[in-house]
Design a protein around this nucleic acid. Structure first.
Lengths: 335, 335
DNA sequence: CTGTTAGCGCCTTCAT
DNA sequence: ATGAAGGCGCTAACAG
């Protein structure tokens, strides 16, 4: 059976209060006493019950990660990043998928908050921009950090990259290679990043004096299937583009497959480039040019900001982390 | 703020015990009373605290899903399957990645069990065959269900497909198409299924009187990279095989990519077949022949078996679910 | 059928 | 610097 704080206190010859103090790293415990307690904890392999701590205290040492994404690779990346930091800090993460288009979304989130005593929540796109979720969180007064939110930037700490600049840079690269007719596959309409990436693409085209062609800009859904379909459409056009820019890696893999199916050499007949949100591109299209979005690191940073906040009462939330390309910069909000 | 059972009892004009009875669907509550309580619950949007229930009762309405797998698609499949059933039953799932090769594995699991009050655990491969994890679970006397375990079949309920027969069937198919030199990529050595699939392949070859060639059987790791490497090795051999059997879909995608890179037509120059553990193949290699392993359904069935057990005190654990191809059969253990 | 009385394991005032 | 007492929200025997 699991051992309890009472057994530890007996073993160490102190009161449970003292053990609790040691557990929570509180001051005013004589070093010698602290050592004895720590020894007893180790000897009994004691682990405080999350349920009991949540019930008694105002902290639960649990945070939740919300997501609603079509890409298993993406989900795995954010889960891994968030968990990595939580383990370091002795926190537990609740991975919670949700449906941003559901009518019950607000109720679902409220239920999660009521059932589970959480210390904070991380929102990943497109949940980062869900008005219902944000409202429920604010109502419950729970701290939250958003990954790559598109709007209301000042209502919460956030972690993001500059999608527009990144898309612009990739487009510059393609143009630099001599491409003038470049296809673009837009991401899922629910994701704000989709539009930001499109904007960056367009801005680069304009800067290079290249006219847009409507049929070269196709809607996708951030998943393999939609990328494959859009790729096929463009690659079978009478005058097909010489390059295709996919807004994420799943769609890029789809385009690559379409090219292969049509017997086109990559990058001989058709160049493919785009965002690598989840390191999938490193596997599927290693020779191609991508902007690597450090998804795992974004989630890691989000967890850190959140947990720092619960430790210090919210002070550190005044920071935001900007990850641009491979450069990580940290800057203070104007606040 | 979250409302409590006490507020519900006040609103309904009954004692908290009665509310608790309604919550837990216990008998001996007058229908009229039950209705009044349910109304109050709905009106106050009351959700019982998981922490409080876990502390007070012997049930927590929480189970854990353990995994240690290189494939994000696989992880997502089992998470989705398990969660789907848990939501139906009002349970919460804790997704817990672990490292079966870690020296701290036993401690990690013991920690999970001590911190979280769980009603049961689902093990997915290769955790299903981890002696440490199984020992920790048995020590804690917690019910657990294993997905596709390789050994000690009677120590727990299990959910599985017949990997050997499936591999045999696929091989038969390839031979039926006229292939005599078939490459085989073995799965991760930690997974029992890897060996079972190899055995099925070999048995089919033997039955058809085809001699094995050592260089046509290559070790893989169930991930894209290893499949890609093994595929390249075989496709660049002086006398390359006419077909390749990949032990899972990630490796199959790797082989497919290798074939494309080498300018080989699929399935013209090289046939590719194998297991589709995660529906990845449906996307990446739709025209190819695969055995679909219903991973999501396996996890769903595992969750059902586990929760049924907690409801009925373990009786239903005498059942096992066999999913073979698209046929689902349920049969009683000899027990 | 319903209510009363104790805790579950821990944190949190308050004393000392 | 340490301990005693009370309670978090709920379930579990007991009475009625």
């Amino acid at each position: 059976m699991r051992s309890t704080i009472r057994e530890v206190s007996a073993a160490a010859g102190v009161s449970v209060t003292t053990v609790s103090r040691v557990l929570n790293n509180e001051p005013y415990v004589k070093p010698a006493t602290r050592r004895r307690v720590e020894e007893a904890i180790a000897r009994l392999d004691f682990r405080p019950s999350v349920a009991a701590r949540a019930l008694a205290g105002q902290r639960s040492f649990q945070i939740a990660l919300l997501y609603d994404n079509p890409s298993p690779y993406y989900i795995y990346s954010i889960q891994t990043g968030a968990r990595a930091h939580c383990i370091e800090r002795g926190f537990r993460v609740v991975f919670q998928e949700c449906d941003v288009t559901s009518a019950d979304l607000a109720r679902d989130i409220a239920g999660l908050l009521a059932e589970t005593h959480l210390d904070g929540v991380i929102l990943s796109p497109p949940v980062s921009d869900s008005a219902e979720v944000i409202a429920a969180l604010q109502r419950s007064n729970l701290p939250f950090v958003r990954i790559a939110p598109g709007g209301s930037l000042d209502i919460s700490p956030r972690v993001f990259i500059d999608d527009e600049a990144a898309a612009e840079r990739i487009t510059d690269h393609l143009v630099g290679l001599g491409h003038r007719r470049i296809g673009f596959i837009i991401g899922h309409p629910d994701h704000v990043a989709s539009n930001q990436r499109l904007t960056g693409f367009r801005r680069a085209l304009a800067r290079h004096g290249i006219a847009e062609e409507a049929e070269l800009i196709q809607q996708g859904l951030f998943d393999f299937t939609s990328g494959h379909a859009a790729g096929r459409r463009m690659l079978t056009m009478a005058r097909r583009p010489s390059a295709i820019f996919a807004s994420n890696d799943d769609m890029g893999a789809g385009v690559l497959t379409a090219a292969h199916e049509l017997g086109l050499a990559v990058p001989g007949d058709i160049a493919i480039a785009g965002f690598d949100d989840t390191d999938l591109a490193r596997l599927v299209w290693p020779p191609l040019t991508t902007i690597r979005q450090p998804t795992r690191e974004l989630a890691h940073a989000a967890a850190k900001m959140l947990i720092d906040a619960t430790d210090t009462g919210g002070q550190q939330l005044d920071f935001e982390l900007v990850i641009r390309g491979s450069t990580v910069a940290q800057q203070r909000l104007k606040s």
